[in-house]
Design a protein around this nucleic acid. Structure first.
Length: 639
RNA sequence: GCGCCCGUAGCUCAGUAGGAUAGAGCAACGGUUUCCUAAACCGUAGGUCGGAGGUUCGAGUCCUCCCGGGCGUGCCA
């Protein structure tokens, strides 16, 4: 399968160069799916925008483009029409559509089949996706959900495209709060560190609260806590051991959540704040030396857009100040003064900005990345603007002959309750992810049991099947509800909506999949007969894999077209980090399938038609399974 | 105050570098099971895209102002 828009783009670009000569090079043909199916399959809006520049009449220009395209008579095109003010309406040829489907590798060819025959990215990149980032000694809560789900989908999609993806789980495993926790554990419950005693993250969380309370009332304890921080920094064995215990417990907790959630992060992807600890002091010292205020123009790779940065002490803190090319501060305080990014506090401690810089330097220099994607909530937008501006100002992102390292902050909105306030428990606490996922699964289970109790709907699932389906549906529903939103907007969390069978939800798509699979199963009983029939007829006509698509009903062609759009959808998702384009695609695909399902009987059709329709069913189910898989959502064969 | 984001049907949301009559789902109303999973499908109705100007062949989308909401705004992450 190859991207339709990509192929059309090449054709149009060749035509544009025919007409315009060299100036036609690099002109975007402005290809879109047709606004309305009655216009065709795709449209190009290039004539109208181009005519403005060249002074031609848009329709004349469109006609010349059409003429040039027709002279090439490519297999992909059926008809071309100029319409309205200068739209070029494109209808793809049935033969090309059928051939495209026939060329998709069949299931036995596993590696290629799992990619549906998509070509890997022409320019594979090394991409860090930084996501999830739970805090050690705390349970994961709803605040970690979006980063974890969205980041995982990015990682899967980019990997699918053929990029080298390095997942980075930047866990919060370092900081002054551990001094308190270590001191508390040692002092109040030394046996907690005994390996034979069962201590879970929930306990650590409680200890931490108690430690906080103790610190507030007991100056002596504060001192001990600070001493533990120093001891930990120095690598003192008992402090280090306590810290490792805490991190280990936390790791067990978050890995269990990932397992439940179906997230692809592993222990190997963990690169927490502690990893960068030793790099912070040298980094700050080096930056302070190299970007002292008197020395601001030494960035040899600077372009007019490159921020100019200085690193200097201010009120005892070491700060990065950013200016644009005009010397204006890029960030300002309420009073209009420049707002710096502090990288070392006046007490000598480092901050998350310092760690983020150290991590970026590591990724650029050690991991050799082409792109870094930070998946965090929108409230950190200014923080990342500052970090990115600093990195560019330091010239870290500039590479000789390889272009800039691309930095993306893939921000997202908050999860809101139905009251439109950030989602909390009734008592105002963050909802634990373990509880939320448990509720999702048990709600899904209830739905299944309700159906099983109804003789008309009963499928006769075993207890194991019910558990498996409930898990897939419940978790899938939570993930899909998140991914189908436009990332940047806040979204309202609603169990009823995400678990609904109607509309753009995981259960709906999973149900569509199960229905199609049911046909496939029934059809496979006939496949031997089909093969015999095929062999008996003119077998040279059949595609090598046995699929030979024919379009008898418009619904078959519409389904085929939608299937072929999978490739361009993946490109859009990866390019713009917009996963909701994939959910929309899958929902539209289900819609196209349902229209087909209603008017095109599969199993009762005559042999050639049955074979073709069976192939459409098979391919649709595969696209659904693989598409949902890219979102981290598992399908079930029956539900 | 300044910066960023948002305001689209009663509700929840799409709307891909400005393109043809603004799309879904829910809720409402009406229809479809001798037929491959009805947890389904089809249809009807519902909108001055927060308001006002502007840019142009063409604006939900770009610019300016205003109204309403969210977030951020020097030693938390």
């Amino acid at each position: 399968m190859t991207s339709i828009t990509e192929q059309l783009r090449e054709l149009f670009q060749a035509a544009l160069q025919d007409i315009l000569g060299p100036s036609g090079q690099g002109v975007d043909p402005l290809l879109r799916p047709a606004a309305d199916a009655k216009f065709g399959d795709y449209q190009s809006n290039v004539a109208m925008s181009l005519a403005k520049k060249t002074g031609d009449r848009p329709r004349d220009l469109a006609e010349r483009i059409v003429q040039s395209l027709k002279e090439r008579s490519p297999a992909i095109l059926d008809t071309l029409e100029v319409a309205g003010p200068g739209f070029i309406n494109i209808r793809l040829s049935d033969g090309w559509l059928a051939d495209s489907l026939n060329a998709v590798p069949a299931i036995p060819d596993t590696a290629a089949a799992d990619r549906l025959g998509l070509a890997p990215a022409r320019d594979p990149q090394t991409v860090v996706v930084d996501y999830s980032s739970p805090n050690v000694a705390k349970q994961m809560h709803v605040g970690h959900l979006r980063s974890t789900i969205i980041g995982d989908a990015f990682a899967r999609v980019l990997e699918f495209e053929g990029h080298r993806v390095i997942r980075q789980n930047h866990i919060g495993d370092w900081g002054t709060q551990f001094g308190m926790l270590i001191a508390y554990l040692k002092q109040e419950m030394p046996d907690a560190l005994d390996p034979s005693r069962e201590v879970h993250v929930a306990d650590l969380e409680a200890f931490y609260r108690q430690a906080n309370a103790l610190a507030a009332s007991d100056p002596e304890f504060q001192k001990t806590a600070r001493a533990e921080v120093v001891a930990l920094h120095a690598g003192e064995p008992s402090a280090l051991k306590a810290w490792q215990f805490i991190v280990g417990e936390s790791r067990r907790h978050y890995l269990a959540i990932y397992q439940k959630l179906g997230v692809s992060l592993t222990e190997a992807d963990e690169r927490g704040e502690s990893f960068y600890n030793d790099r912070l002091a040298p980094l700050v010292a080096d930056l302070k030396k190299r970007f002292a205020p008197s020395d601001t123009t030494k960035n040899a790779s600077a372009t007019p857009q490159t921020p100019r940065v200085t690193v200097e002490e201010s009120d005892g803190a070491i700060c990065v100040f950013h200016c644009n090319a005009d010397g204006e501060p890029m960030f300002t305080k309420p009073d209009g003064d420049p707002l710096p990014m502090i990288i070392r506090k006046s007490d000598g401690a480092f901050l998350y900005a310092t760690t983020d810089l150290a991590a970026m330097q590591f990724r650029v220099e050690q991991l050799g990345v082409d792109r870094i994607i930070y998946v965090t909530d929108a409230r950190q937008a200014q923080h990342f603007e500052m970090v990115f501006a600093a990195a560019r100002g330091f010239s870290w992102t500039h590479r000789q002959g390889k272009g800039e390292v691309r930095l993306d902050h893939a921000s997202f909105g908050s999860i809101l309750g139905t009251d439109r306030r950030p989602l909390k428990t009734r008592t105002g606490e963050n909802i634990k992810l373990a509880d939320l996922l448990g509720e999702a699964v048990s709600r899904a289970e209830q739905l299944i049991r309700t159906n099983e109790a109804d003789p008309a709907k009963r499928r006769g699932f075993s207890e194991d099947e019910i558990a498996d389906i409930a898990e897939a549906v419940g978790i899938g529903a939570v993930k899909y509800a998140d991914l189908c939103q436009n990332r940047q907007s806040d979204y309202v969390f609603s169990w009823d909506k995400m678990l609904a069978m109607e509309g753009n939800t995981a259960p709906y798509l999973m149900y569509a999949y199960a229905r199609i699979r049911s046909i496939c199963r029934k059809g496979s009983g006939m496949s031997e007969q089909v093969q015999e029939d095929t062999a008996a007829s003119a077998d040279s006509q059949a595609a090598p894999d046995g699929l030979d698509t024919v379009f008898k009903d418009p619904a078959e062609r519409a389904l085929a077209l939608q299937l072929c759009r999978f490739a361009e959808t993946i490109d859009s998702v990866a390019g713009g980090l917009r996963v909701n384009m994939l959910t929309d695609y899958l929902y539209d695909l289900s819609g196209a399938f349902m229209k087909f399902y209603e008017c095109c009987p599969v199993l009762s059709a005559e042999t050639a038609i049955r074979k073709s329709r069976w192939g459409l069913c098979d391919l649709t189910s595969r696209v659904l399974r693989i598409g949902l898989g890219l979102l981290g959502i598992r399908v079930v064969e029956r539900m």
